[in-house]
Computed example of a mutant assay.
Amino acid sequence: MDLMGEDLTRPTRAGRTEDGPPVRAVLPPPLRAWLGPIAVLGASVAVVLGLLFAGDGGPGTVDARIGASVDGTGAWWRDVALATDFLGEPVGAATLVAAAGAGCLLLRRPRAAVLVVAGTGASVATTKLLKPLVGRTIHDGSLSYPSGHTAFLTAFALVVALLAAGRPGLGRTAGTSLVLAAALVAGAAMGWAQVALGAHYPTDVLGGWCTALAVTPATAWLVDRTADRQGDRTADAVRTERG
């Protein structure tokens, strides 16, 4: 407590404060041992697929087979696909991010709010950087690899699942399973919609999913590290003032 009556706290590496409540990391420490290798694997798959389909203007063999299986989607299912696709459009994506960010702030988790924006934004930005590098096209020449829509919804699901997995009492296995299940469901839903609407090849979708798996945990780690360093600087300044 300083002379003005303000309660000054310092986040520590263990995720606690010296004088206040615990500070929850957005990348739960128990999950790091699993998500690190998964992120590396996701990055590797995304790069390999990008190299395989660089400069292509049509579907591969696997793409054609999977595409044929979802071709001819009925009117009702097409409406579902369009609704899912909307979640990856600028208005839909901004709505999801704003709602989740506001929820984090209401729960007094500013670090989590930063991850909602940074995690989804970094994933989508990565797909935009990769598209011209890979140069794969679909239909009228639109760049297609990797799928930004799939990367966004997968990243959003990953962020929400990471925040839920950080709750006390949830073990490493259960937390990792929750995060991967959320990523799989979100990626599969948006991926199906993109293929059904003819917006992407199936391998574009896989590339977008792997991009989110690689970028989101790395962004969460960076957010935690930056916040911890900022806390250390603040604590040092407080100790200097008190001294």
Rank of each mutant, 00 (worst) to 15 (best):
M1H: 08
M1T: 12
D2I: 04
D2W: 07
M4V: 09
E6A: 05
L8N: 04
T9R: 10
R10H: 05
T12W: 14
R13T: 07
R13P: 08
R13A: 11
A14M: 13
R16T: 15
D19Y: 02
G20L: 07
G20C: 02
G20Q: 07
P21G: 14
P22W: 14
P22C: 11
V26G: 06
L27K: 15
P30S: 02
A33S: 07
W34L: 14
P37W: 05
I38R: 02
I38E: 01
V47E: 09
V47L: 14
V47R: 07
V48L: 14
F53P: 08
F53M: 12
G57S: 12
P59H: 00
T61N: 05
V62C: 09
D63M: 01
A64C: 02
A64I: 03
R65S: 06
A68E: 15
S69P: 01
G72K: 11
T73I: 10
G74Y: 08
R78N: 10
R78Q: 12
A81H: 11
L82H: 12
A83F: 11
T84Q: 06
F86D: 08
E89S: 01
E89Q: 09
E89A: 03
G92E: 07
L96D: 04
V97W: 05
A100W: 10
G103Q: 01
C104E: 04
R109P: 00
R109H: 00
P110I: 07
V114Y: 07
V116H: 00
V116K: 00
G119Y: 11
G119T: 12
T120Q: 02
A122C: 13
S123E: 08
S123Q: 11
A125C: 10
T127V: 08
G135V: 05
H139T: 11
G141P: 03
S144V: 02
S147E: 11
G148P: 02
T150K: 08
T150C: 12
T154G: 09
V159W: 00
L163E: 13
A165E: 12
L170F: 10
G175E: 09
G175V: 00
T176I: 12
S177V: 15
L178V: 05
A181T: 15
A181V: 15
A182P: 09
A186V: 02
G187H: 12
A188H: 14
A188Q: 14
Q194L: 14
A199N: 15
T203Y: 00
V205W: 05
T211F: 03
A212H: 05
L213M: 10
A214V: 06
W221G: 13
R225Y: 10
D228H: 11
Q230T: 09
T234L: 14
T234D: 15
T234E: 11
A235H: 13
A235R: 13
V238T: 02
R239S: 10
R242H: 09
